[in-house]
């Protein structure tokens, strides 16, 4: 029955920033549908509204106008606490700057979103171990982020996003702070996760990585200019 309802449905989303009485249209007329198991990339030049769109998708920000349905449920009326809850359960964030908490160990960072739910310590431990294994960081569980390389930190961030078993992974320029080798490794990890069935939405300005996705959405000046199935590397 769930197959008929898209995971995410954006209708005519508009975002306006008011700065010193000047309206800046960051997004307008955004229509986007993301289904379970999708791998969507959002790309475009800097300032095109990618990050704003991702923030709205991740419930970090609300649209000025338009509707956003998650699993067929509108989210506009949710209050702060309910949004926090949805973020915690449905969304896994991967940031460009990793955003790991420096005062927590790798293990604790991954555990963090789980502590905001009613899981027992044993259950949390199990999940942490599981995701650590998945990203190949088991050996570093007790390390602090500062003791890790950028690539390793991003893998921990991916693990943290996965631990909550979210409906969708939102990745905002996950390779932006990494060298190409580490960047490639993280992208490979995302591909692998997708192959296992994860739904991923990737924001990137790097065309190479955008092509990983099944579908690419190009933004320009806050509007979607193209939204088409990506050309798979081998399919040309």
């Amino acid at each position: 029955m769930q197959t008929t309802i898209p995971l995410i449905q954006l209708n005519n989303i508009e975002k306006v920033f008011l700065t010193d009485e000047v309206e800046t249209h960051a997004l307008s007329g955004i229509e986007l549908e993301i289904r379970h198991g999708d791998y969507v990339s959002i790309s475009g030049p800097s300032g095109c509204g990618k990050s704003t769109l991702l923030s709205i998708l991740g419930l970090l920000d609300s649209p000025t106008r338009g509707s956003y349905e998650l699993r067929g449920e509108p989210i506009e009326h949710l209050d702060y606490a309910q949004r926090a809850r949805v973020r915690n359960r449905e969304i896994g964030f991967i940031f460009q700057s990793f955003n790991l908490i420096g005062d927590l160990t790798v293990q604790e960072n991954i555990e963090l979103p789980l502590t905001y739910r009613g899981l027992t310590a044993a259950e949390r431990k199990e999940r942490v171990d599981e995701t650590l294994t998945k990203v190949g960081m088991t050996a570093r569980a007790k390390h602090y982020p500062a003791q890790l390389s950028g690539g390793q930190q991003q893998r921990v961030a991916v693990a943290r996003a996965l631990g909550g078993r979210p409906s969708i992974l939102l990745a905002d320029e996950p390779t932006g702070s990494l060298d190409s080798k580490n960047g490639e490794a993280v992208m490979a990890l995302l591909r692998e996760l997708h192959a296992e069935g994860a739904t991923i939405c990737l924001v990137t300005h790097d065309e190479r990585y955008a092509r990983d996705a099944q579908r690419t959405v190009h933004l320009f000046d806050g509007r979607i200019v193209t939204n088409k199935p990506a050309l798979q590397p081998g399919a040309e």
Partner: peptide, 16 residues
């Protein structure tokens, strides 16, 4: 601030 923002993004309620 950054730490708090990360926690919030990961679903910590304000009360928490």
């Amino acid at each position: 601030q950054k730490e708090m923002a990360i926690r919030s993004a990961l679903g910590a309620s304000r009360i928490r």
